[in-house]
Structure formats: structure tokens, C-alpha cells
Design a protein around this nucleic acid. Structure first.
Ligand SMILES: [Mn+2]
Ligand SMILES: [Mn+2]
Ligand SMILES: [Mn+2]
Ligand SMILES: [Mn+2]
Lengths: 225, 225
DNA sequence: CTAATAAGTTAGATTGATCTAACAATGTTT
DNA sequence: AAACATTGTTAGATCAATCTAACTTATTAG
């Protein structure tokens, strides 16, 4: 078998830690139900796995209370994320995949145990700091280089912005952006915002377009004027 | 978890099928004990897995009789081997790994489910037919392009040969060859053979060297004169 | 041809990851 | 505050992959 040594998380544990990390990005109050939905397993399954993760020191948890990663758990999660994001970047940069096809592959590759393999990817790409969706790649110690990114729909009218990353990216979002010709690095100007549906009117490469709040709240930008 | 669909082999089953394939290359009579040693699991474990593989139609087996892959089992094994060998070649050709470091990584990568991933490797390398150790890469249908390779110690005195592949390659063998400056493509002349210890005296790049039978029976060659 | 050795099998247990059914606690509405 | 809905827990089962101990069959050596 895969014989990961006993100090180390199983693939399942790794996937739980990553899910907890992602959920605590949006809500900060991670529940059993959240995990159950996000991992598509029953609540009793999550309940017992959560006990297991607590016993291994990866999370803090008390009956009926929210779940949070410990320092150790956060580091383990960050190191898997590092492998995931390096992989995604490598698949796009070096193997010619589209940014919407790489997540599923990275979901599997992230569990490979071989520091040399990921170090080599990193080196061949010149030590990238973000993945193809603009998410930061943690360093080898599991530290995130902090970034202060702003959501597009939080920017003022008239401001010009460059898209630097995506929040909660999904295949659907990526395909939507592809269809509009929007990508990381695209420069947009905010023309107006509707208070009725929170949609944002932008101009971009001459074109004038409306983006729903569902899209604009997922676009992280840097203001350039 | 990794949710391979129900028609498909688990990672454990894949590793068993590959082990059966490799064992039947050298001995043709694959036993429970052989598998137990090669996979480092107990004989009862092998016994029950063998029943399982039979139930899934991958092998033929009757109590106390030898184990053999069915047509289906052979194909499954060949397709994993294809992924393993494409990976090894990719790691050497495109990522700069040494031929002795790639096996362990490929042992994990071979279980990734993503035809696109392996097709892309294949394409980027220009459809190689052998891996870095000279073993043939089965095609997408799981067919082996037949090769007629001869062991070095079966060649006559005076003949000149080029090393095209290795048999039962191991990290130890690869490191030994590295230390002597011998690689795939090396051209050797057979000077003499000892009937006492079956060692072979060769000349190679001006140097005169003796190779034990342990080495020479693992070198597969093409005679060039 | 027996007796010793090796190989294979059965039985029963364990562990990790999952499930369903039933119940308990918490939170939200009227 | 009581009722209802949501969320979480417990108990008990299953399945894959593994183990050890005990037993049986096959092979090999004397
Ligand atoms: Mn991803
Ligand atoms: Mn994963
Ligand atoms: Mn190999
Ligand atoms: Mn493997």
C-alpha cells in the first residue's frame, strides 16, 4: 500500500483539512454540516472524522461547537495547498492545460509524497507565488505571503482595476470568464453599480458589459487608479 | 473518497495486478508466496485479495494452483504500466530527474485518473516507445509492441552490442551502471566470458571491464556486429 | 515412502472510512 | 415559552485491506 508513515495524515485526512481550511476562509465558523455538504459524506461520518482529527492534534473541537484548525493543522493544510497550487500552475504553464481543467488533476496530485517532485516543479517555473487562479502558493514552511486583495464589487465607481485573483473559483466561473474574454491581468473600469441587483457595469477592451454580483464578488482586484 | 467508479480497480488492486504482471515476466508460475514477498504483505492477505481479483475477472485462480492474469487483467495491468512508464520518461526527459530517482514517484503517479494528463505527457515527449530503463510503453489499448531483446550474457564473444533496455532494473543496478558510466545506448564489445563465474569481459570507450553475471543478465542488447 | 519443510487456507480480529436509523441538543418562529 | 426545524451525536452495520494463529495440502529430502 501507500504506507505513509504513522506521523502523517492519510489522503482522507488531508482532504478534510483542506476542506476545513477553505470553509474557514469564507465563514470562519466551520460546522459539521458544512463539511458534510462540501465533502459529500454523511454527518455521522464527519462527526467521527472530526474526533479523529482532534485526536491527531489537527483541529480544536468540542461537542456542538465550531471546528477550527490548530497551528499544526493549518500548516498541514497549507502544505497540501502548496502542492495543489504548484501542480495547477505547472499544468497550465508547462503542460498547456486550460485553467478550468487543472483543479481535478491537482486534487489527486496534491497527495503525492515526494518533496523532490514538487520542488522540481517549483524550480522549473521560477518559484511562482500564485496559482493560475491567482490564489497564493504557500512557501515550504506552510506560510502564506499575505496579500490584500479587494473584491471588484467593493471598488468605487470610476476606478480602474486589474484582476489579480479569484475567490471561490469553480469550473463554472472559469468557463464564464473564458466566454467573456476576461482573465487574470484583465484591466477593467467600473462605470456604474446597480443598487437593485448589485450588478456592476464595466468597460473592458472597448466593450461595455454588466457583471452580476455573483461574478463580481468573486473577482479580486488591485486598484490602479 | 477518491471515488473511482465501481467498474474500476482500487489502487491496491492495481498494485497487485502490476505485481502479478512483473512476476509472470520472470517466472510464469506466480504463487501466493511470490506475491506475499513482492508486496510485503502476509500470505492470508494475498490469499483473500487473490479471491477478490478472481471475482472481478482480473485473474484465473484455483486453490493451490498458480495465478495468471486474464485478458482483462492483463489489459488493466498494461494500462497502469503505461502510466508508470510515461511518468518515468516524463520525469527524466522534461523534469531533469535521474533514472534512478523516478520509480518511486511513478509508483504513486501511475494511480492518477486522468487520461488527459497522461496523453499530454505522451504528446509533449513525442510518443516515446520505451521508458528511461528501456522497458516498452504499452499503447493506449494496453498492447505491448513486441520487442526481441537479447541478454548481454547470451551474446557471442567478439560481438559488438548496444544496450537498449534493462531487465528487472533496481535502484542498485542503476546506481552500479551510473558508477561505471554505462547507460542505455552504450556500445560494448564482448572480449571473453568466464565459464567459472559466468562473468563477461567487455571493452567500452577504451576501458576494459569485467561484469558479473548478475549485471550482464540484466542488460538487454541489440547486436550490431 | 515416510517425515520434515514449505506453501496455502481458514477463522477470527483490527483499523479506517463510510453508511442508516434513531435520538438529543440547539436555534428560530410564532 | 412551546413547537418546529436544523444540527449534531450515538449506536450499530458494512466494506476494503490488513494482521496472527492454527490448520491443511503439497513438495522435497532422506
Ligand atoms: Mn484548485
Ligand atoms: Mn485531494
Ligand atoms: Mn519503474
Ligand atoms: Mn503503485
Amino acid at each position: 500500500m501507500l504506507s505513509r508513515d504513522l506521523l502523517m495524515a492519510t489522503i482522507t485526512e488531508e482532504n478534510y483539512l483542506k476542506a476545513i481550511f477553505h470553509l474557514s476562509q469564507k465563514t470562519d465558523q466551520v460546522s459539521i454540516s458544512d463539511l458534510s455538504k462540501s465533502l459529500e459524506v454523511s454527518k455521522p461520518t464527519v462527526n467521527s472524522m472530526v474526533k479523529n482529527l482532534k485526536a491527531h492534534g489537527y483541529i480544536s473541537y468540542e461537542k456542538y461547537k465550531p471546528i477550527a484548525l490548530t497551528k499544526v493543522g493549518l500548516k498541514v493544510a497549507a502544505l497540501i495547498l502548496r502542492k495543489h497550487r504548484l501542480t495547477e500552475m505547472y499544468l497550465v504553464e508547462k503542460m498547456g492545460f486550460g485553467w478550468e481543467e487543472v483543479h481535478e488533476i491537482a486534487e489527486q496530485v496534491e497527495h503525492i509524497e515526494s518533496p523532490a517532485f514538487f520542488d522540481r516543479m517549483d524550480e522549473l517555473m521560477g518559484y511562482p507565488t500564485v496559482d493560475p487562479h491567482g490564489s497564493p502558493i504557500p512557501d515550504k514552511k506552510g506560510e502564506f505571503l499575505s496579500q490584500n486583495k479587494k473584491k471588484l464589487n467593493d471598488c468605487g465607481i470610476g476606478s480602474e482595476v486589474i484582476i489579480t485573483a479569484l475567490r471561490m473559483s469553480s469550473k463554472g466561473l472559469l468557463e464564464f470568464l473564458d466566454s467573456r474574454g476576461i482573465a487574470l491581468g484583465s484591466r477593467l473600469k467600473i462605470l456604474s453599480k446597480s443598487t437593485f441587483d448589485n450588478s456592476v457595469m464595466i468597460s473592458y477592451e472597448g466593450k461595455k458589459e454588466s457583471l452580476s454580483d455573483k461574478v463580481s464578488e468573486r473577482l479580486l482586484v488591485e486598484e490602479v487608479s
